[in-house]
Amino acid sequence: MSAGRLKKKSVGIAMLLCAALLLAGCSGSRSSSAGSYSGSVYTVKRGDTLYRISRNTGTSVKELARLNGISPPYTIAVGQKLRLTGKAKSATVSRKTAQNSSKKTPKKTTKTAKTAAARPSSSVPQSAWPSPGQRCWRWPASGKIVLPYSTAVGGNKGIDIAAARGAPVYAAGAGKVVYVGNQLRGYGNLILIKHNEDYITAYAHNDTLLVNNGQSVKAGQKIATMGSSDAASVRLHFQIRYRATAIDPLRYLPPQGSKPKC
């Protein structure tokens, strides 16, 4: 196989591995392409989710849904104007606004749409998550947890750890780096490590990346420095994915500041 074809194939595999990460929603950090808002009105832009808008504006998802009459699965449209304060709007008016906004939006194929086919048809239910202790995970960074894992629709699919810029980021386990880059909007400088056929860990918003695609890493090896790429503040967004499903890292990590006993 030629070098060009091999490179193309590697990129394709990496993007498929990233697809579930991308489609599951962002970590809740501010994106440079987020919609604009003035006063009490927010204008939705491509790639926005209700959860991301909540983080950008400081208005809770529950309050945004109530004010704008949006019901699960919280569908919003590009160009739609969302109220951030005031009295609640009826669901009928909200749906009509979203439909009108959609008609005005050019039909363009986005990267998210292209990767939709790679989204798993079903996720692993929490009852089928692996038992703690089956694998030895290490803390990827030291710092304060500023955003925990959430099972809510559009919720955080990992944990966000805050520390000083330049703080070390470590591999949570031994494995092979399958993605290094910043092509996935909302994650900034991102690293994905594949540990076996079942597990992948993700490290987002890094400042400096210290590993290369295809590189083998050891558990506890320094792979990056903490930053704020595509985030509102310096933090590490960390995920553990089991068969493409994001599971709660705190359920599997040892007590913070200690080494795994397994």
Rank of each mutant, 00 (worst) to 15 (best):
R135D: 02
A128I: 15
A128D: 13
V146R: 06
A117D: 13
G133F: 03
P140E: 03
C136D: 14
A141I: 14
P130E: 12
Y149S: 02
A128M: 15
S127Q: 09
A141Y: 01
G133R: 11
G133H: 07
P140S: 08
P132F: 12
W139P: 00
A152N: 03
Q126M: 07
S131P: 03
G143N: 01
S142P: 01
Y149P: 07
P120A: 07
A116F: 02
V124H: 04
G143P: 00
V146Y: 04
T151G: 12
K144R: 13
I145L: 10
W137E: 04
P148T: 02
A118C: 04
T151V: 07
S131V: 12
A141E: 07
A117R: 06
P132V: 13
S150L: 08
S121I: 01
I145K: 00
A118F: 13
R119E: 10
A116D: 05
S121N: 15
S122H: 06
A116R: 03
G133A: 08
R138A: 08
S150N: 00
W137Q: 05
V124I: 09
R135G: 00
P130N: 08
P120K: 06
A116E: 11
P130A: 00
R135A: 11
V146W: 01
I145E: 15
A128T: 11
P140M: 00
C136K: 13
A118P: 06
S150M: 05
S131W: 15
P130W: 05
S131Q: 15
G133L: 08
Y149T: 01
L147M: 09
P132Y: 10
S122N: 14
Y149A: 10
Q126R: 12
P148N: 10
S131D: 12
A152G: 06
G143Y: 05
G133S: 07
A117F: 13
A152H: 09
G133W: 10
A118M: 04
A116Q: 04
V124P: 02
P132C: 09
A152C: 03
T151F: 13
G133E: 06
P120Y: 04
Y149Q: 01
P130V: 15
